[in-house]
């Protein structure tokens, strides 16, 4: 254990190393007055350094040599490891998964917006189903919270998508285990529905109340791996005379959701509407809720029509480059766009 990893000022660290205190154990063996003399610093400062060191060595024992310097802090190296090993929620459209780096990430807030009828709700339902794909099939085996503010969640559609997902899993299973005896699996589409916690929200106060309540709910249901809000916008687009209040409420909500995502290692998916923005004499299409809201999410995906094909475009992402990919909404749910498949075959 190196002294250089202690949360100390650079000058203190420099003095420690030049005085020969390179390892944590050498620091633990000394007293504050000895340290003050060796480093030519006040005894109080020496005591502080020892306190940091002892807290650190205490933590090390508990965390079994982990890198937790302060409570909750991590090194970038650990985070990279964690990110590389983390599993994404697939969108069931491999082209879309590719540009997203595997799918919708846990610990992040992803915002998805587009015109009515582009497939926002479809994608929402698809993710609520896909999060339940068991670990044996490369999924998370988690549960979903679906917060419906617009009433567009249809049970029969969710069942349809769940059935298609179960079929795909059975097919995968029979490919994997050629022996038909081994593919004894019991995947009930209805079980998918039972693992969705559905909240129907009718006012913005209810929306805020439910988001505040989520923390308690998720700590009781630790297997929840995705929270979908369809849509975050609807109740905030009716007459808010006090726009500053709206910005404050939205900001508070965004912060809560980000914390939930981090703390419980789950994905938060916010569906948003689009609006026209009046800019220098012309109307442009942007995601609703204004500029300050655009900071609320880690990733932003815009869904749009390109001719007769649906496309998804990464507008904002800290790790993926902006790119777009076609997708299709089928009876089975979100899938690869068929015209794209043809193109791939031709090449």
């Amino acid at each position: 254990m190196e002294v250089s990893s202690l949360p100390l000022s650079a000058s203190q660290r420099g003095k420690l190393i030049s005085a020969g205190y390179t390892s944590l154990s050498s620091l633990c063996a000394t007293s504050s007055c000895n340290l003050a003399r060796d480093l030519k610093i006040s005894e109080n400062e020496a005591a502080d350094i020892l306190k940091v060191a002892s807290r650190r060595s205490g933590l090390d024992k508990i965390e079994n040599g982990g890198q937790a310097i302060m409570n909750g802090a991590q090194t970038a190296w650990d985070m990279l490891h964690e990110e590389e090993s983390s599993i994404c929620i697939t969108t069931s459209c491999s082209d879309l998964d590719d540009i997203l780096g595997g799918g919708i990430r846990c610990k992040e807030v992803t915002e998805i917006g587009g015109v009515p009828g582009i497939g926002k709700t479809q994608l929402g339902i698809q993710l609520a189903v896909n999060v339940q794909i068991p670990a044996d099939y490369g999924g998370l085996g988690g549960k979903a919270i679906y917060i419906d503010t617009e009433g567009s969640f249809m049970v029969e559609r969710a069942l349809q998508i769940a059935e298609a997902c179960a079929d795909d899993m059975l097919e995968y299973n029979s490919l994997l285990w050629k022996d038909s005896q081994a593919c004894e699996v019991n995947i009930q589409p209805r079980a998918f529905l039972n693992n969705m916690f559905y909240f129907r929200i009718c006012t913005y106060t209810e929306q805020i109340a439910v988001i505040n309540y989520l923390e308690k709910f998720i700590s009781e249901h630790k297997d929840v791996k995705v929270v979908i809000i369809d849509s975050i916008t609807f109740h905030f687009r009716q007459d808010f005379e006090d726009m500053a209040l709206r910005t404050r409420l939205l900001g508070g909500m965004a912060l809560k959701l980000m914390n939930l995502a981090k703390r419980f290692n789950l994905a938060v998916v916010l569906l948003n509407q689009v609006t026209t923005k009046y800019n220098e004499g012309s109307f442009q299409l942007t995601l609703a809720l204004g500029d300050s809201w655009s900071h609320a999410s880690t990733n932003r995906i815009i869904l749009y029509w390109n001719g007769n094909e649906r496309h998804a475009y990464i507008d904002k992402s800290p790790s993926m480059r902006s790119a777009s990919a076609p997708y299709a909404v089928t009876i089975k749910g979100i899938r690869n766009s068929t015209s794209n498949c043809k193109r791939v075959k031709l090449m």
């Binding site: 029969e156 529905l193 709910f217």
Partner: peptide, 16 residues
């Protein structure tokens, strides 16, 4: 009214 009252679980079988 509590937030937990807004939870509908299990989901109804079908929309009328």
């Amino acid at each position: 009214m509590n937030p937990e009252d807004l939870l509908r679980h299990p989901l109804p079988a079908e929309t009328p």
